[in-house]
Amino acid sequence: MYLNMSNELQKPVIGITSGDLNGIGIELIIKSLSDHRILDICIPVVFSGNKSINFYRKSLPDYNFNYNTTKDLTKLSHKQVNLFSCWDDEVAIQPGVLNNIGGEYAYRSLEMAVKALKDGQIQGLVTAPIHKKNIQSEKFNYSGHTPYLKDQFQVNDVVMMMVAENMRVAVLTEHIPVKNIAEHITIENITRKIKIMHQSLQTDFGIEKPRIAVLGLNPHAGDEGLIGNEEELVIKPAIKELKAANLLVFGPYSADAFFARGQYKSFDAVLAMYHDQGLIPFKSLAIGEGINYTAGLPAIRTSPDHGTAFDIAGKGKADPTSFLAAIFEAVDIIRTRQGYKDARANPMKKMSARILANAVDEKVEE
């Protein structure tokens, strides 16, 4: 979303996948898109089935959720939520149950949404949670959305980055067994990931000279080689190489002290060496609702920072706040990217999608 020269509001089309049909995905969609602010800032398109949506809508009578059904992405309503019909099946939905049906239809939704993203029919994608086991098939042999999107867009690499109001934490290795982490800690991997982060911080978040912190792999960042040597042999040389390329990269820092002492507040992003090293402090310290962003894609994809939550699926208890934040963040990044492209030729005042949405609300209330 951005303001053009005539000050007309440009609303991007945001695709939304249904996720695992037995999880909380569709409930989150209904709750989030019942928020009237969404239609002020984007044109939402849900990739799902009419009967699947209605299954959950009936159990959420307090939410005013109406939509326009279409099978043609060139004929979208700008005043309603749009449902792009991916199937007409009467799916046997079983909230909270892990089965093949949940994974099969999650993939159908994802496949069609990604095709629309690649074709430029939608400008951003928000993915509802999938279960990494039951979605596995010949077509989807990945550990999650991030590597799938990497292959679909045929890019060399991407970065899983968790984003909140007060911090951004990326991970060098994603969903791999802990015993395999060390073999992926290489100079090449570190430098490639940080270059992607650096570019994303500039183009997607509007930070001209981003400062990036790098965590060590071992306790106390190796204690000068006493507790492992990855810091001395790999991480420090990688940081040196990046500094030589004029990137503001610092570390390696001992992960426990780095977060406990609030050092993350001095940086625009942090690169953790593995999943839990980054996500545990992120989910503990993040202010506001955190979201997951895939940096390095030519397109924009966000998601909430949680999973399918089978334990509360179908009970109306799912909190849509992170999902709503993922939609706002997708719109905000679209606006920032456009502003970055136009900045030299046409400098404009940067305006957050969240701020703009609030401004529109206030105007309507007047």
Rank of each mutant, 00 (worst) to 15 (best):
residue 4 N to Q: 04
residue 9 L to T: 14
residue 12 P to Y: 08
residue 25 G to Q: 03
residue 27 E to T: 04
residue 33 L to Q: 05
residue 34 S to H: 08
residue 37 R to Q: 15
residue 44 P to L: 03
residue 54 N to W: 01
residue 59 S to N: 11
residue 66 N to L: 02
residue 66 N to Q: 10
residue 66 N to W: 00
residue 74 T to H: 13
residue 77 S to V: 13
residue 79 K to V: 13
residue 83 L to F: 01
residue 86 C to A: 12
residue 93 I to R: 05
residue 95 P to H: 07
residue 111 E to Y: 08
residue 111 E to Q: 11
residue 112 M to Y: 01
residue 113 A to G: 14
residue 123 Q to C: 02
residue 124 G to M: 02
residue 127 T to D: 05
residue 129 P to D: 03
residue 133 K to L: 13
residue 142 Y to G: 03
residue 150 K to C: 00
residue 157 D to K: 09
residue 161 M to P: 09
residue 175 H to R: 02
residue 175 H to E: 00
residue 179 K to I: 10
residue 180 N to I: 02
residue 181 I to A: 03
residue 185 I to W: 00
residue 185 I to K: 01
residue 196 I to C: 06
residue 198 H to F: 12
residue 200 S to L: 05
residue 214 V to F: 06
residue 229 N to E: 15
residue 230 E to F: 12
residue 244 A to D: 08
residue 254 S to G: 12
residue 280 I to P: 11
residue 291 I to N: 01
residue 294 T to F: 06
residue 313 A to G: 03
residue 316 G to D: 01
residue 317 K to G: 03
residue 320 P to E: 03
residue 330 A to K: 04
residue 338 Q to P: 03
residue 339 G to I: 09
residue 343 A to L: 13
residue 344 R to F: 11
residue 345 A to M: 14
residue 353 A to G: 14
residue 354 R to D: 07
